[in-house]
């Protein structure tokens, strides 16, 4: 079912939120407020927001190392996300996860894996519990082009297929695994083809067109909810910035012409222009959305800055749910 006008505006707002949040993250990193490095979702917002728009609130998401956008699209509060990136006590993971692990169980975002491909088996297990518990929930599993060459990808697709688990595997193919061109390390032109090896549907979609992503994912979600099993979707996308901000890669591996060409296919511009031309949003609406968003981002940054750094003793908490005194480790 196509999105209603209000849902299309909401989708645009999600894309804008991810974009403005990430721009702010870059600024906070440059200001020295974020330790380590960050993998930004800029350029990927169409695939992320489009995919999450096809989910119900109770559905699950599993992300990747490039995963700031996934909890945002699933409805997380921005403050604890920003605080986490700054390593603060009020971070969504209390400062223990950081950029690659912005997990927020309150919105069904169950985990992001710093290990490429690490999330696929987890998503498959989340599908297993949905099936056994007959919860009617599904799991949307994001992963990258690099993960599609991991054993965990192939094992997971096979496992989900044999047990008809309600999982949608959504590949954000941004054409590079860090600096390695995906086409130099893939045996097939399109990752979606790999679905054939597991007897499940495989579909390619323009990742820069959030509505196209939504429509393909929504179909796969319906199929999963009907108990017909998993699907593989490949969203062709592109990261507009570096592999990671804060990590210096001293060689050029993408030519400028290619980067410029992709930046012309900006998922934010594409949807904004379309909604504007169709009269769904006006200039004033846009200005108001931007201004509201600016306030939300500023509030998130203020929340994060006001949060204390965790006490060093907190490093010893959350190792076990049920710490047993017999072991005094």
């Amino acid at each position: 079912m196509p999105l209603r006008p209000s849902e299309r505006i909401s989708l645009l707002r999600d894309i804008m939120t991810i974009r403005r949040f990430e721009e702010s993250v870059k600024k906070q990193l440059q200001a020295g407020l974020i330790p380590g490095s960050v993998h930004l979702s800029i350029g990927h917002e169409g695939a992320i927001a489009g995919g999450c728009a096809a989910l119900d609130d109770g559905d699950f998401v599993v992300g990747t190392h490039r995963s700031h956008g996934h909890p945002i699209a699933k409805g997380s509060d921005l403050g604890p996300l920003m605080a986490e990136l700054m390593g603060r006590a009020d971070g969504v993971c209390k400062g223990k996860g950081g950029s690659m692990h912005l997990t927020d169980h309150s919105v069904g975002v169950m985990g992001e894996s710093g290990i490429v491909g690490g999330g696929l088996p987890l998503a498959t297990g989340i599908g297993l519990s949905a099936k056994v518990l007959e919860s009617g929930r599904i799991c949307l599993c994001f992963f990258g082009d690099g993960a599609s060459s991991e054993g965990s990808f192939h094992e997971s697709l096979n496992l989900a297929a044999i047990w008809k688990l309600p999982v949608v595997y959504l590949c954000e193919n941004n054409l590079y695994g860090a600096t390695t061109p995906a086409d130099s390390v893939l045996s097939v032109e399109d990752i979606a083809i790999r679905a054939g090896g597991y007897g499940i549907p495989g579909e390619i979609v323009d990742g820069q067109d959030a509505e196209a992503v939504h429509s393909v994912v929504a179909r796969a979600v319906d199929r999963a909810r009907r108990g017909e099993g998993p699907s593989l979707i490949e969203a062709k996308t592109y990261r507009f910035g570096e592999h990671a901000e804060g990590l210096i890669i001293p060689v050029s591996y993408r030519d400028e012409e290619e980067v410029d060409r992709w930046k012309k296919r900006d998922p934010l511009d594409i949807l904004r222009t379309r909604l504007f031309e169709e009269g769904i949003v006006s200039e004033e609406d846009m200005t108001q959305m931007e201004s509201e968003l600016q306030q939300r981002i500023e509030a998130a940054v203020a929340f994060a800055k006001a949060s204390p750094m965790p006490e060093p003793s907190a490093a010893f908490e959350d190792v076990y749910s049920n710490p047993i005194a017999g072991g005094s480790r």
Binding site: G118, T124, L159
Partner: peptide, 19 residues
């Protein structure tokens, strides 16, 4: 199937969500 990494990870994902 003989997919040790896959099904061990499934166990983890399923455990996180109620099994």
């Amino acid at each position: 199937p003989i997919s040790e990494n896959g099904f061990c990870g499934m166990g983890v994902g399923a455990a996180m969500t109620g099994l």
